[in-house]
Design a protein around this nucleic acid. Structure first.
Lengths: 128, 128
DNA sequence: CAAACCTTGACACAACTCTGTCAAGGTGCC
DNA sequence: GGCACCTTGACAGAGTTGTGTCAAGGTTTG
């Protein structure tokens, strides 16, 4: 059974046991548990933990940033709202009079929603 | 000319002048400047500021979260790296032996890159 | 059964986020 | 020219993130 307990996993990934629990707490990586509740890290989790460290170090980002990115992929409405906000860059077309601003925005939202609807609902890549 | 100075903008958007400067500092909204360096908020900026407050309040997120979302859309490499990490959910297909894990990952990266290349490089929605 | 693990919970502390306020100095306008 | 505004910079304080350490108690196994 190739699954390590938290201290062993810490050893081979460079994270501290404390941080492995923290990474789990912020929702980024939740290992399986033994019957008694021990955390069990498989090869996939170990690889992911190493990659995670690289990701954080190379781009100078924090766990909270990744946690937000996770929220973005999980919460459809949040993603729509933030996308809409960024899309509404302050480059309102010169020809559009101020009064039409709102309807202009509305139109943009419609386009965004249409684009979202076109996406595959959920890939669910079943274990082959 | 419909452009407000920082205190006026604060008045009509509900942000404090201090926070308007902070929002600018984290890169989320940079108003134009007068010749003397005064911040000038146009109608578009004012609307964006109100929408920003809504966005933060309704989803209980912070400016730093939005700042990271901005990094994600600006920094192609960062987006690729985070997407790749999330894509590599710990559901490694059972059939793949451990030794092939790395090449499996590599393959996934290739697919991701191909998907990215297929995208429109930059929408650049020219002023109609 | 005792040693060496594991669990959760808590205290602690540096660094950062968010927000206010105040100081020193430039700008606009009557 | 003076008052009301703007600028940047700094100090400050509450709250969050990231991290260590320690305590009280369950698990595994020689």
């Amino acid at each position: 059974m190739d699954a390590l307990t938290i201290n062993e996993a810490a050893e081979t990934t460079g994270w501290s046991p404390r941080m492995l629990r923290y990474v789990e707490r912020v929702g980024l990586l939740e290992p399986k548990r033994s019957a008694a509740g021990y955390r069990l890290y498989g090869p996939a989790e170990l690889q992911r933990l190493r990659t995670l460290r690289e990701l954080l170090d190379e781009h100078d980002i924090g766990l909270s940033d990744l946690a937000f990115a996770l929220r973005l992929r999980r919460d459809e409405e949040l993603r729509r709202a933030t996308d809409a906000w960024f899309e509404a860059e302050a480059q309102r077309p010169a020809g559009v009079p101020s009064d039409d601003w709102l309807s202009f925005e509305q139109h943009k939202h419609e386009k965004l929603l249409a684009a979202l609807a076109r996406r595959i609902p959920t890939p669910t890549p079943e274990t082959v």
